[in-house]
Amino acid sequence: MTVQTPERPAVTQEPPRATPPPPTVRAQQPETAEGASPTHLSARGLDLFYGAHQALKKVSIEIPSHSVTAIIGPSGCGKSTLLRSFNRMNDLIPNVRIMGELRVSDIDILAATTDVVELRRRVGMVFQRPNPFPKSIFENVAFGLRMLGLKDRNELEIRVEDSLRRAALWDEVKDRLDRSAMALSGGQQQRLCIARSLAVEPEVLLMDEPASALDPTATARIEELVLDLKARYTIVVVTHNMQQAARISDRTAFMLQGELIEFDDTRRMFTSPHQKLTEDYITGRFG
């Protein structure tokens, strides 16, 4: 770390930061939502249109690093759309227009000069339905690494094992790495997809209803995993399950018809929400 001096050194390795760097290297312990953990992912005045239909309306949100942020709201309110904006997956849909500002760390996500491939490596994504490739378990996890040009078998093996361990799947699959991923159970497939994302060392993990296609046991394992992972990653989870949001997230964002209604500490959100709409939603009056 550079010491603050009146004259900055000519060459700085660190990118410019809005806040002064913390005195220690990153805190490994999860911090409370009120803690000083810096914003990792942010949207400012984000509008998104599918053709003429506006799916996001002036959404502004600041997601702190190394925490779990849940996005809740009724079906069709724009949760997935917001999530997919952070790694520009919406680029794949024709006729999408997006305006406003999105940042991950120091990167301007929407800038024309931003390398989407690099962005997506840094901002990983786990989808609603487990979607492993029809390849072996090993090749699924090694995929992203191979695409980055990693060929050394030894290193691949080390990284695949490491990713599978982090996704709490290693013990279940270590004896059948060369078997097809399609033969795994739904819950295992989803953890494999998480391992696959972790292998390319992202900073952020976006999860779109990662457990909605799974049974309760598999869901519980995914939830545990999410709690484990926040020590190393910034996690944003879309869920329509409010109990799940309450169990796993530090902060919760409530969306309704394309608008971000409220964003707050999860405990406060579920006990004393500020907005009437939020209260109505979490008490089950609509949605």
């Binding site: 794949l92 989808f127 339905r129 995929f143 994302s197």
Partner: peptide
């Protein structure tokens, strides 16, 4: 399925890598 392509692109694979691999 589109989901395979999405998974690949979301891992930082290029469109050509996605098509070919």
């Amino acid at each position: 399925p589109k989901s395979f392509r999405e998974a690949s692109l979301a891992l930082g694979a290029t469109p050509w890598q996605t098509a070919w691999n």
